[in-house]
């Protein structure tokens, strides 16, 4: 309860600081409008159809790309993680591909696929598949030698081993990958929209700012933040539900 009050206080403090900076005029109001103006703009937007259309467009691309990445990344990651030879062979390739800034493929994708919603989902997919794959691989490898030994002595069949040993053992790590990928998916979807003519939140930010309505642009940025934050909270909740078997960790342990 006291913590909640503290947190509310901190939010109020940051809002006040923001208002002060905006009011004093150190920064031009087009770069940083005041919190009241942004709140007003957000209030107007919440009642408009274009706003929800933009949110829907962004989520569409992000979710489709993310689902595809999960469908490919988890099975490939688990299987290659279990077999040491597969993991070793693919390590360097995955490392190189993972560090590739996917958004740089945009001009190429624009050339090849054109400016379509499918292109947006494809870029999201490419950006998300590697974190999911790597974390799944890592999770499959995190099953301890002791557990493997037990599974051998009790002659557990291969399929059962996958379902009840490798998969649950990998869940903590896979969840981390999913959380990373979910945040990335929104980031990339908005990035694509900022740079192309595809509709969505990113496009609306650009359009608002170009029309001089920076309060509206900030309202859209706040919306993007809210989506990202909701994903974080949702992932935390899912982790909590899925990982009830783990002993409670010391406070402050989060990556």
């Amino acid at each position: 309860m006291k913590v909640r009050l503290l947190q509310l206080g901190a939010v109020a403090g940051v809002l006040a600081l923001w208002g002060l900076v905006a009011a004093v005029g150190v920064v031009s109001p087009t770069a940083l409008p005041g919190p009241a103006a942004v709140a007003g703009a957000l209030g107007d937007l919440l009642g408009s159809g274009t706003y929800w259309q933009a949110v829907g467009d962004t989520l569409d691309g992000a979710v489709i790309g993310l689902l595809a990445a999960v469908a490919v990344g988890i099975p490939v990651g688990l299987v290659t993680g279990v077999y040491a030879a597969a993991e070793e062979s693919s390590r360097l390739l995955v490392e190189i591909l993972r560090s590739f800034p996917v958004i740089a493929l945009l001009p190429v994708f624009l050339l090849v696929l054109g400016s379509t919603p499918g292109m947006k989902a494809t870029v999201v997919f490419v950006a998300c598949v590697f974190p999911v794959l790597l974390q799944s691989q890592y999770g499959a490898r995190s099953v301890t030698p002791s557990v493997h030994e037990t599974v051998r002595t009790y002659r557990i069949p291969r399929l059962l081993r996958f379902r009840r040993v490798i998969l649950p053992g990998a869940v903590p790590s896979v969840m981390t990958g999913l959380r990373l990928a979910a945040t990335t998916s929104v980031l990339v979807a908005i990035g694509v929209e900022v740079l192309t003519t595809l509709p969505g939140i990113g496009h609306m930010i650009m359009e608002s700012q170009q029309a001089g309505a920076s309060d509206r642009a900030y309202a859209y940025i706040l919306t993007a933040g809210t989506i990202g934050y909701s994903i974080t909270l949702l992932a935390q909740y899912a982790e909590h539900r899925l990982l009830r078997w783990r002993p409670p960790v010391r406070a402050g342990e989060a990556a």
Binding site: T144, P145, S146, V147, E149, T150, R164, V165, P168, G169, V171, W245, R246
Partner: peptide
């Protein structure tokens, strides 16, 4: 500690 599977009751 290691031979029991932590995610199973």
């Amino acid at each position: 500690r290691g031979s029991l599977l932590p995610w199973m009751r």
